[in-house]
């Protein structure tokens, strides 16, 4: 077969393939009809053959380039990974995420140590030396937050507060989740950035908390009852995002038996899933912090809610999605 005849005979199919590809690429996979897919697959296989023919006979780079593009488009269309769905995401949050976290408990422990120890130490220092808090927070901001906690929170039910809550909700989502994602991403630089984010946040939150607690009396009660509920999700999530960052760092520094590149790919996805889970937790925390924590109810209720929240978070992360022991029944079937 010579080149001209080849082009003349095959051109029809190429045109049809291009047209079909154009249609399917712009449709979601749900709307693909089986006949279309069958035709696409058939044409794709024949065009693969055409391409290898042109490659082996060296019939011109332009023809090869054209067929190459067709094959690339078809490959892109036919070979895909399972698309993400809402059901999968929910299942992940309920089961996959706690499971993953327990698998990565070492990174979690490291991250917790780097956050909680400076946090506790800084709180004690803050109680002893409240004046040091200005080092991490501005003088004016500090005075404002002290003042806001010294009086009852949102005692008035006027409309100003409904607006302020939504504003603060947006602020918490942006700020806290941003910090968590940063802690994760900076893990790619061998974990140095993650350490920095964890330490600096632990120290500054601790110092300010210490300064507020040092005031004692109503201020301390208001403050503690304010932070106790959402703190369960928020602090845990920050630690988890740090853990995600350390998983990234581990894949770079300690590839184990994999090559380094394989190690990056292997750990990359799992660490991202951890970070995304902590992002979801932080959005939940922002809802609580914006709309529940400042409610004008007795501190006792808030302490109760806080205890329940910590318990639930602990149960969820500690127990959800455990493997059940596999029972083999007499018929040989497997039940779980």
């Amino acid at each position: 077969m010579n080149r001209e005849r080849f082009i003349r005979e095959r051109r029809q199919d190429w045109g049809r393939f291009e047209q079909l590809l154009g249609v399917l690429q712009n449709l979601p996979e749900r709307q693909w009809r089986s006949l279309q897919v069958a035709e696409l697959a058939r044409l794709y296989r024949s065009i693969c053959y055409d391409l290898s023919l042109v490659q082996s006979r060296e019939w011109g780079s332009r023809l090869e380039e054209y067929l190459n593009d067709l094959v690339a488009g078809g490959h892109n269309c036919l070979y895909r990974t399972r698309p993400a769905s809402v059901a999968l995401a929910l299942e992940f949050i309920a089961i996959g995420f706690p499971r993953l976290l327990r698998q990565r408990w070492r990174a979690f422990a490291l991250s917790a140590a780097l956050f909680v120890i400076p946090f506790v130490v800084a709180t004690i220092i803050g109680i002893v030396r409240p004046d040091l808090a200005v080092l991490v927070a501005g003088e004016q901001e500090l005075q404002e937050s002290l003042k806001s906690f010294s009086s009852e929170l949102y005692t008035a039910t006027d409309e100003r507060y409904t607006g302020e809550r939504s504003f603060m909700f947006g602020f918490y989502v942006n700020n806290n989740t941003g910090i968590a994602f940063q802690a994760f991403s900076l893990g790619a630089l061998a974990g140095v950035g993650t350490c920095y984010v964890l330490l600096s946040n632990g120290i500054s939150i601790g110092l300010v908390q210490g300064a507020v607690l040092a005031k004692g009396g109503a201020t301390a009660v208001n403050f503690t009852s304010f932070v106790i509920t959402h703190g369960s999700l928020e602090l845990t999530a920050i630690v988890i995002s740090g853990a995600a960052g350390f998983v990234l760092a581990q894949s770079l520094l300690l590839p184990g038996e994999r090559t380094r590149l394989e190690s990056l790919r292997y750990h990359g996805r799992e660490s991202l899933l951890l970070a995304l889970g902590s992002g979801v937790m932080l959005v939940g925390a922002a809802v609580l912090e914006g709309y529940f924590s400042p409610l004008p109810i007795a501190p006792l209720f808030k302490y109760l809610a806080g205890a329940v929240a910590w318990l639930l978070v602990g149960l969820w992360l500690g127990l959800a999605g455990r493997e059940r022991p596999v029972i083999v029944d007499s018929a040989g079937g497997v039940q779980s």
Binding site: G163, E164, S166, F167, M168, F169, G170, V173, N174
Partner: peptide, 10 residues
């Protein structure tokens, strides 16, 4: 304004 600012921040 505050509600909308919250939305915009998101």
């Amino acid at each position: 304004v505050q509600v909308m600012a919250g939305l915009a921040t998101i």
